[in-house]
Amino acid sequence: MSSLIYYRSSLSAEALKLKNTFSLWLAILAPCALVSMYVLAFWSKGEHLLREGANPWYAFAMQIFGIYTILLMPIFIALLTSLTNGIEHKSNGWKHLYSLPLPKSSIYAAKATTVIGLVLLSNLIFVCAYLAGGLFLSVVRPELGFEQMVGLEAVYVTVVKMLLATFMIIAIQFWLSMRWSSFALSMGVGIVAIVTVMVAMRWEHIHYYPFAYPFVSIRQFAAGKEVIRVFTQEVVLSLGGGLLVFILGYFDIARKRIS
């Protein structure tokens, strides 16, 4: 009971801390920027990006998902975690936080919730931007067929899968950025993730590689198969692995001496 109160007070403080920060804007602007680039692409060259008879909403989603999962997601998460924890590294904040009458676990949990919340927020904005972009295209390029909104459930389910599939990446990056103040480390790991996923994309065991989970999670959608099941293998692995990393990360952080 009291731990819930501690957690809530830490969390509301974390929420206030986000005010005027770049990480909050990043969470909002990154998906908008991505979607608007593809809106421009479809606006000018939509006829080349659509196959005859295919659902334009799927084609639109697929283009965005590809870049989102492989390129944007790893960098985005690295940025978010290192910015969120960077606030503390920068302002001598850990010492201060841990000398407050709050259990270490609630501080950790509140930070983790903030980062996960930001990723969740950006995914919500992503869906909104996607819908808005499609509707905008239905007005400016009516011949592309965007006015018929059918089968969007598959897109929603895929976004949920994608979000859950990033859980382990969030956990790893969160631990790295809490443990070390270096911004370069987080970014380096993010870039290595991108390169390795791109290189090993066709490897038969790629679905065991944590940084490839988001990419694997959209494969089904990409192949045009029916997408109903959320908890596919990579999603379960990501959730399980992510939880494990979060817990181990906590024990590592809690044991660290603050100097």
Binding site: K17, K90, S91, N92, K95, L97, L100
Partner: peptide, 20 residues
């Protein structure tokens, strides 16, 4: 002092107030 430089003095206090 560990101040969050992007926040006002009042917000720094408010954040801290929530924690204590």
């Amino acid at each position: 002092p560990s101040l969050y430089r992007h926040l006002s003095g009042h917000d720094n206090l408010e954040m801290h107030r929530r924690m204590v």
